[in-house]
Simulated scan of single mutants.
Amino acid sequence: MKRITILIADDEAEIAQLIALHLQKEGYHCLLAANGPEALRIVQTHAVDLAVLDIMMPGMDGYEVTRLIREEHRMPIIFVSAKTTDLDKITGLVRGADDYVTKPFNPMELVARVNAQLRRYIQLNQPAAEMKPVLEIRELMIDPDRRTVSLYGKEIELTPKEFDILYLLARYPKKVFSTENIFQQVWGEAYFERGNTVMVHIRTLRKKLGEDVNKTKLIKTVWGVGYTFNA
């Protein structure tokens, strides 16, 4: 079985070592970097399956490291940062991260998030048994095999989690999904009540779909219940 390698990039050595300690207990091989350029060199020279990145690092911040990684790689990226506002989280997810954990954090929660990201990443990279049908809903086209989305003929760049949420809602346009249900199906893990991860992803997804300027709402909020696809 292939050994899974995880990059941990944080200029605070104690935090990087704490994360590595808990992930190594899960059987993962960990590579540590103390700054942005070192993190990028590791990705370029090793087969990294997942990256845990601090945002505020010397030499090159986590945003820039993520941008450069995304030019060639699709592995999951989790930001672990002391930047805790909703705007910080939205920025991190828009910049290409798949998840965002704020400091201070529970190491076991981070391990659970790493496990969930890896499960989905490995599953999505398995050879497909059969082609999935392309969803065409009005001007929106979703190709689950190529994992592409286009609106009015223009392709929209979505993060893996944004795509999964949109595809889930679009497949069942008459069903209302609770925040907890979306989290469990997309992230593949138990719902953390204190988090607003789903809400942040929905917000950025709506923005990319142009719902801030377009009166046609593709993702409808059912107040007190959750979200549904407006077909």
Rank of each mutant, 00 (worst) to 15 (best):
A97S: 07
L21I: 10
A47I: 08
V225A: 10
L110T: 02
Y191G: 01
M60T: 09
E12K: 04
V186A: 06
V101G: 00
Q123R: 15
I182A: 01
H29F: 02
I77A: 02
Y28A: 01
L140S: 08
R67A: 11
V225N: 10
L140E: 07
M60R: 13
H201V: 11
V222M: 08
A129V: 05
G153L: 03
K220F: 12
H46I: 07
H29E: 13
P104D: 03
G59M: 05
D49L: 04
Q123H: 15
A9N: 10
V43L: 10
A170T: 01
M199L: 14
P173R: 01
G62W: 03
V94M: 11
L40A: 04
Y191F: 14
Q117W: 05
K215M: 13
N181D: 15
P144T: 04
A33E: 01
L87G: 15
H29S: 11
D86N: 13
L205W: 03
M1I: 08
M60H: 06
N125V: 13
G210F: 09
Y121W: 09
A39Y: 03
P173N: 05
G62R: 10
G224A: 08
G188D: 12
A129L: 10
Y172E: 15
V198C: 04
R146N: 11
D10F: 11
M56K: 14
T179Q: 09
T216Q: 04
M141F: 06
L68I: 02
Y100Q: 02
Q126P: 06
L205Q: 07
P37D: 00
Q126L: 11
A16K: 10
K2A: 08
R70N: 04
Q17M: 14
E157P: 07
R74G: 01
E157D: 10
I8K: 06
P127L: 06
I42H: 01
Q24I: 00
D10M: 11
G27C: 00
R147N: 00
L7D: 00
H22M: 01
G210S: 09
V134A: 05
K2H: 09
L32H: 06
T197K: 06
R113V: 07
W223M: 09
E139G: 04
Y172D: 14
D49E: 12
V149L: 08
I69G: 00
W187F: 15
T204D: 01
L18E: 07
T84S: 15
L135Y: 01
I182E: 04
C30F: 01
Q126T: 11
R74P: 01
G59L: 05
G62T: 10
A33M: 02
L68H: 02
A116F: 03
P37Y: 05
D61S: 05
A39H: 05
M108C: 06
A116M: 04
V101L: 07
V43W: 06
I165D: 07
I182D: 05
P144K: 05
G36F: 08
Q126G: 02
A97I: 12
I69W: 00
E109Q: 13
Q184C: 13
R206C: 12
K220C: 14
E189W: 09
A190T: 14
T84F: 12
V222L: 04
T45E: 13
V114M: 08
H73C: 07
V213L: 13
K175L: 11
D98R: 00
G224Q: 08
P58M: 10
K132S: 03
